[in-house]
Design a protein around this nucleic acid. Structure first.
Length: 592
RNA sequence: GGACUCGUAGCUCAAUUGGAUAGAGCAUCUGACUACGGAUCAGAAGGUUUGGGGUUCGACUCCCUACGAGUCCA
């Protein structure tokens, strides 16, 4: 039984005996005591007070007395308004600490037999990855890690958007103006090279529109009539017909892009178990349309188009198949959902996709539910806001994007400059230094993007490089390095067993309390799909450790028992920080 | 025309899901190394939680409304 469960049981008993109120122990809500008050656990008595028509203070007092006298864990308590703050005995904390120490997989849940699929990244193959993709990839990777820690078997997938008119645009521009250039000949990363032609297309296309408009044609009409656009559309038709020359070009250019993405993914530290390509899946879903019609869930309009009515759910009618029999975006998503479930029979499926698709996923999930798909209850859209620049939204066609590779390089350089200025790393081996700068630079970037609640838009200012002080990965990594040093040095001392009776320093107790929350933090992060919960927890942990470090001398402790406990405490804090940061995809160094 | 999301200190973000005096970091100011790592610690200052109503023991959180930022559907 965990400490919390013990308290819940005792409170449940007390409520029954004192007030004849039956509350199942697991429904007894405990919260962490605020820092300004003494205690670790708080029980709020307002509701109970209302039921028994007594003052909240009186109820708190009676409960406190009962727990102190008949319970096993509570040594003191105080009641402020309707808040009963419980102070547990040091012996309880020490015992708890020992159990944490003994548990090698502390914080992680055992396998629960459930499968979950996490789809993330899902890039277009016509341009390089940018800052927005970084948020997506870090979120996706982290949530996969967190779900694993919660006992799930996780399958990470990447749906590559490798076909369509946007792909044809860069292909066409390359065909016309490329002169046979290759990544090798131009010494350019493949995705960057293809991206350049995408921009080139847009530039020339705009020029054509301007020319047409000068002859008095409306903008809308000019966009349609522009020769380049017409050619791109013809190219798409040829691609769909399987024209060998077009397909060959498509394969060649996609190959370049994949090679480029591989480098970027490796740098990000993310990976995938399975790739799906839209060029293979874009015709899926038509079978589902028939199924829906047969079941009477879909309906046909006069022009032959197929729709579903979702107005009962507060949504609109949604088109599923055009009158000419061609599918729309959501048709293939329906088919893909089935395919994914066939490949990997999961009970949960997480889609990490930007919030501009909130409506799309609401519709998609509603349709799958109406179709009675068994996996539909486990569908979740992990929606996240855009990353804005001070100048506003990033627009790839206007060149106002922050490139993923560039940004990662800059972060690593900044970390390197900073480290060298502190002149601590001079004698590190070259390899360790390179690793360290990567750890620090990428860690800062990941942490910056993950500590924020995904639903919120966030601001990134390229003028100010990301902080390496304060609420950052660097701060946490520094704390870990500090702990590692303590552990190395502790080998010079003789350590003894930790006694059962020991008076904890306030800063030590804070750390044990925080350590005890780790499993719940992981569960919570998993339930809410929220890496930011982990990020904030790691920060609290590091902060508390640094405070402890300042207040409590380790190697000049009063007694050998005290020194030994402090070393052991440091070790556990270090482990939890490392595990927590790894859940965010961030590595921590042993020295820096 | 409908729908969704967000709005918290000068700036970037928290707030245990309805709990106590709304917390951190950056920036500003002050203090702490003959100390186990100063990439640190301690402190000051900074708030009508966008405005206005409502619900109740209690509201940043829920409801209504106005405003602002953004997105989607036809």
């Amino acid at each position: 039984m965990t400490l919390e469960q013990t308290l819940q049981t005792q409170i449940s008993q007390a409520l029954s005996e004192l007030f004849s109120i039956q509350v199942p122990s697991e429904e007894v809500l405990l919260q962490a005591t605020r820092k300004d008050f003494e205690g670790s656990h708080t029980f709020v008595t307002f509701q109970i007070a209302k039921q028994v028509r007594k003052s909240p203070v009186e109820v708190g007092q009676q409960l406190g007395d009962y727990l102190q006298q008949k319970g096993t864990a509570v040594s003191r308590f105080n009641v402020v308004q309707g808040f009963l703050n419980l102070v547990l005995s040091d012996a309880v904390w020490i015992e708890l600490f020992k159990s944490i120490q003994a548990n090698t997989s502390y914080g992680f849940q055992p396998a629960n037999g459930h499968k979950v699929m996490v789809e993330y990244s899902s890039p277009n193959t016509n341009k390089p990855l940018h800052l927005g993709h970084l948020r997506n990839n870090f979120l996706g990777y982290s949530i996969a890690q967190i779900l694993k820690a919660n006992g799930y078997e996780v399958m990470k997938t990447n749906i590559v958007n490798d076909r369509g008119i946007h792909i044809c645009k860069s292909m066409l521009a390359y065909q016309k103006f490329g002169n046979g250039e290759t990544p090798e000949s131009s010494n350019t990363k493949g995705d960057k090279l293809v991206g350049q032609y995408y921009v080139e297309f847009d530039k020339r296309y705009k020029a054509e529109i301007a020319e047409l408009k000068a002859t008095g044609i409306s903008e809308e009409e000019a966009e349609k009539q522009a020769p380049l656009m017409k050619e791109a559309q013809q190219m798409l038709v040829k691609w769909e017909q399987g024209d060998s020359e077009t397909v060959a070009l498509w394969k060649k250019m996609n190959g370049w892009v994949y090679a480029g993405f591989d480098v970027t993914y490796k740098r990000m530290g993310v990976d995938f178990d399975k790739f799906y390509y839209e060029s293979n899946t874009y015709l899926l879903g038509k079978g589902i349309v028939n199924e829906g019609l047969e079941k009477g869930i879909f309906f046909k309009k006069e022009n032959g188009s197929v729709w579903i009515d979702l107005t009962d759910l507060g949504l609109d009618e949604k088109l599923l198949l055009r009158g000419d029999g061609t599918s729309v975006y959501i048709t293939q998503d329906l088919g893909l959902a089935d395919l994914k479930h066939t490949d990997f029979p999961m009970d949960k499926s997480v889609y990490v996709v930007g919030n501009e698709q909130d409506y799309h996923f609401k519709v998609l999930f509603s349709i799958l539910k109406k179709l009675g798909r068994p996996y539909s209850d486990g569908l979740y859209h992990l929606s996240y806001g855009m990353v804005d620049l001070p100048s506003g939204k990033m627009k790839s066609r206007e060149g106002t994007v922050v490139d993923a590779d560039d940004l990662m390089n800059e972060m690593v350089e900044t970390a390197e400059e900073r480290s060298k200025a502190l002149s601590k790393v001079a004698e590190f081996p070259e390899e360790e230094r390179t690793q360290l700068f990567n750890m620090l630079g990428l860690g800062a970037l990941k942490y910056f993007l993950l500590k924020v609640d995904p639903v919120k838009r966030m601001l990134f200012n390229p003028e100010e490089s990301i902080d390496l002080h304060g609420h950052t990965a660097t701060f946490i990594q520094y704390t870990h390095a500090r702990i590692s040093t303590i552990l190395r040095k502790s080998q010079e001392f003789i350590l003894v067993d930790i006694p059962g009776l020991y008076t904890l320093h306030e800063a030590e107790k804070d750390l044990v309390i925080l350590l005890s929350e780790f499993p719940n933090v992981i569960k919570d992060a998993g339930n809410k799909y929220a890496p930011s919960t982990i990020a904030n927890y790691c920060y609290e942990m590091a902060k508390s450790y640094n405070r402890f470090f300042d207040l409590c001398s380790i190697f000049k402790a009063d007694t050998p028992e005290q020194m030994s406990f402090r070393v052991a405490l440091s070790a556990e804090v270090g482990k939890v920080i490392k595990k927590g940061m790894n859940l965010l995809g961030i590595q921590v160094p042993d020295r820096m």
